[in-house]
Design a protein around this nucleic acid. Structure first.
Lengths: 145, 145
DNA sequence: CTTCTAGTTAAAGTTAACTCTAATCCTAGC
DNA sequence: GCTAGGATTAGAGTTAACTTTAACTAGAAG
């Protein structure tokens, strides 16, 4: 084989370790068009550092709520070049705005969860009266719901 | 029927509106043992304000990453009374600790997503050189990955 | 040469959390 | 009394995102 050796090349197993995904998941992502690994002369996939950067970014997008479908669309636009930058910006902004709302809700849930733990602890060590149920307790803290 | 009318009673459709869930989802949650609505004399479900509080709390737990299975366990312990408070506290603390980590990762993803948007905008209006790709840009900002 | 490990494929299976269907029943308004 | 809307049930179907299976090949180690 005469592949260039200037960059690191990962076979699928190693790349799985690097990215934290499994080999089947990498093949699945490929089938969905999210990543296009190179091939050695005898047909084995290999991935480069650039592929690693892309997967890491993709996983960030995924964790902010983007679905595989949306990522697919993003990849298509990316492949179409600079003429689709506006579309990509719009998509990312949408994702960001949605995430912003969910994030705020998650913070609220975090508060409630901690309130519940405090309430349990107060109950156990007697700082909170038996008569005060959790929703009364929340009202006292001014934490609605 | 001779049900007490001292508290508000919701039929399943109204309760769905109150909680933001659908009627089928409420029946599903019931089948899973997450909620036990009362019944009118002729067999219709009805829900009270207490049930609403419980569902709201349950949804908070769910959004912090608790699965239906875990919620089921929580409900079982809750029904067993004060002797299981320690178990419930341990479960909630587990959930909280896990959520704390995920929350930190989400914040990081949020940062990267915003960096990407800034990078796109810098590219579009020429503030960022064509030669600087996104991973270089992240390094410059000292935002790893 | 055999065995082990890691790769290949297409396609079927899994899991969580709903969501829908079908057949039936109850209730309120005209 | 009739009809429309919403209730009941058991059980089948859906969706997203993997995950596993089966059947195979290629290369390295002993």
């Amino acid at each position: 084989m005469d592949t260039k050796t200037s960059e690191i090349q990962y076979r699928i197993g190693d790349f799985a370790e690097v990215t934290g995904l499994s080999s089947p998941t990498l093949r699945y992502y490929e089938k969905e068009g999210l990543i296009k690994p190179h091939r050695t002369d005898n047909g084995l996939r290999y991935y480069t550092e650039q592929d690693a950067n892309w997967i890491k970014f993709l996983l960030h997008l995924k964790s902010t709520g983007m679905t595989i479908e949306q990522l697919k669309q993003y990849v298509i636009w990316r492949a179409e070049g600079d003429s689709t930058i506006d579309k990509r910006i719009a998509l990312l902004q949408d994702v960001r705005d949605n995430f912003e709302k969910e994030f705020a809700e998650l913070q609220h849930s975090w508060t409630i969860l901690n309130d519940k733990l405090d309430w349990y602890k107060g109950k156990v060590n007697g700082h909170i009266e038996d008569s005060e149920d959790f929703s009364k307790y929340l009202k006292r803290l001014n934490h609605h719901e």
